[in-house]
Design a protein around this nucleic acid. Structure first.
Lengths: 144, 144
DNA sequence: ATACATGCAAAGTTTTTGCAACTCG
DNA sequence: CGAGTTGCAAAAACTTTGCATGTAT
């Protein structure tokens, strides 16, 4: 668990070096908060958390850094909410359960789906990079 | 085809009446443009189109009307892009092919998927209302 | 007639950008 | 040292809101 985090940090550092991205203090802290937060944080969430460690950081640095991470494939943008982007540091293939009410996002794996043959008209559409399932509804807590 | 549109308009009028929504000229034109546009238009797209018919309409009316339609289940919001919402007047179950480059959204049906048994951990999450597949990649045009 | 809708203008939110100062490699 | 980063402030982009006027039922 502790090791899990360490591994991700190591991998992060390596990828940054490979990509020619500088390992600044801000980037390290931002990445650490991204992997710590299990609910696919928004940029503002990350800003709030990072501010606790670096009170002088500016929001635009967080936005810019997150965009850079996305661009270099270090995190992914989650398209679930209308008013703000959420981010996902998990790079392994997975799918999402989204609660309409509390906006929580839960990951799940689904190999049966991953192995399905695609419909013909889909195959001729173009080149598909990501196959993603989204279930929306109400999580148990929100049902009450 | 012509009949298809007529049917949707009729159904729209009926739903509005049932819901107690007034059938204003603006709403009629906005709905008509929503079902005419096959590429899941943004609010701005709709505003531009509607402006051709009602030059004095204001953008906020379009936003407000679209929100009302969504609220009453006359259209659905599509969560695909980060910077703006897109809207889908098709209410029947379907899935989306999304081009990263040109942002086009193509509908497809996939009954094999629709009939799949859900993973156990998903079943215990809560109450699911919508099961949606998103394939992202590059459409043929954008591959060139 | 009257409750609901619209238009206008202004404001709210989220995100981006220009530029000088700073810092990692 | 020097190019890539950051912080600041301002702005851009998208969407919402208050209020007076207009209109569908």
């Amino acid at each position: 668990m502790k090791t899990e985090t360490e591994n991700r940090i190591r991998e992060f550092k390596q990828k940054c070096t490979e990509a020619g991205l500088r390992l600044t203090h801000q980037r390290m802290v931002i990445y650490r908060e991204l992997i710590k937060d299990k609910n696919h944080p928004s940029a503002e969430d990350v800003y709030d958390k990072v501010s606790e460690h670096i009170p002088t950081i500016s929001a635009d640095t967080v936005y810019r850094t997150i965009n850079t991470f996305e661009q270099y494939g270090l995190i992914q943008r989650v398209h679930v909410q209308d008013d703000r982007s959420r981010f996902d540091p998990k790079l392994k293939k997975h799918h999402h359960l989204i609660c309409k009410r509390c906006k929580s996002i839960v990951d799940f794996d689904w190999q049966t789906f991953d192995q399905l043959t695609l419909p013909k008209n889909v195959q001729s559409w173009g080149a598909i990079n990501s196959k993603h399932v989204e279930f929306r509804g109400l999580c148990k807590k929100c049902i009450k």
